[in-house]
Amino acid sequence: MFNTLLFYVADPAISVDFYTKVLARPPVEQSPTFALFILDSGLALGLWRKDGVAPSPIHQPGACDLGFKVTLDQLDKIHADWQEMGVTIALPPTKLDFGTSFVATDPDGHRLRVYTLAEDGAAE
């Protein structure tokens, strides 16, 4: 079974440019209305032009997070890299009850949460 998370986007070309930079890889599939990235975990991230989705989406972007579990060193580097790329940071690196996390948003407002877990000893 192949698992895919779909983000509905206004302009797939703009989203492809954004995700190519933040994921440091090109999409494995791309058309004017859809693009597909394969994440390190094996999860596929689909970017689908929202005006072609049936049935129409009922929630706005930002209703959930796409999480990336990393080490604390990786978190700090990703945060610095994304800031340098001009990615919007909604929450800077912050110690939370589960560990350390920061949240960025893509051009459509989808939330990308990069985090460590305190139980791994990464956020202590």
Rank of each mutant, 00 (worst) to 15 (best):
R25T: 11
T105F: 01
P55D: 05
Y115W: 08
G67C: 12
H59E: 10
S41F: 07
K21V: 08
V53G: 04
M85C: 04
I89F: 08
G121K: 13
L66K: 02
D108F: 05
V70M: 05
R113K: 14
N3D: 00
Q83T: 10
I14V: 15
F98W: 15
E29I: 03
V114Q: 00
Y19C: 08
V16M: 12
A54H: 11
L91N: 01
F98P: 01
M1C: 08
T105D: 01
L39K: 04
L47Y: 08
G46K: 03
Y19F: 15
R49M: 12
L5H: 04
G42F: 13
F2V: 15
F7H: 10
V22I: 15
L96D: 03
L66A: 02
L36I: 11
K50T: 08
P12W: 06
F98V: 13
D76W: 03
L72D: 04
H59M: 10
E119S: 07
K77G: 01
Y19G: 09
G42I: 15
G109V: 14
V53R: 06
Y115P: 00
L36W: 02
D11P: 01
A118D: 15
I58K: 09
I14H: 04
T4W: 05
Q60E: 15
T94G: 01
D120Q: 09
T88R: 12
P27V: 08
H59G: 04
V114C: 11
V53L: 13
I89C: 00
L112M: 14
A122H: 12
V70N: 02
D51H: 08
E84F: 07
Y8P: 00
T33R: 07
A10S: 14
P61V: 11
L66F: 14
D65R: 07
L36N: 02
W48G: 04
F34E: 08
G121I: 14
R25M: 15
S101P: 01
E124P: 15
E84Y: 09
T33C: 06
T20G: 12
L91D: 03
D97K: 09
D65T: 13
P107C: 07
W48F: 12
A90M: 07
T94L: 09
D106G: 03
F18R: 00
T116N: 02
E84D: 11
D120R: 11
I78P: 01
G46C: 07
F2S: 08
P27A: 11
G109Q: 04
F68Y: 14
F102L: 04
A54I: 10
F37N: 03
A80N: 05
D81A: 12
D108T: 13
K21P: 04
E84V: 04
S15N: 06
K69S: 05
D106S: 06
A80G: 05
T33D: 15
I89P: 02
I38G: 00
I58N: 01
L117P: 01
A90T: 08
A63N: 08
R113D: 08
S31C: 07
D106I: 05
A63P: 00
L47P: 05
M85V: 05
A54P: 00
S41W: 14
A122D: 14
D108A: 07
Y19S: 02
P26T: 10
K50H: 14
V70S: 03
P12Y: 06
A90F: 02
E29T: 10
P26F: 11
V53C: 10
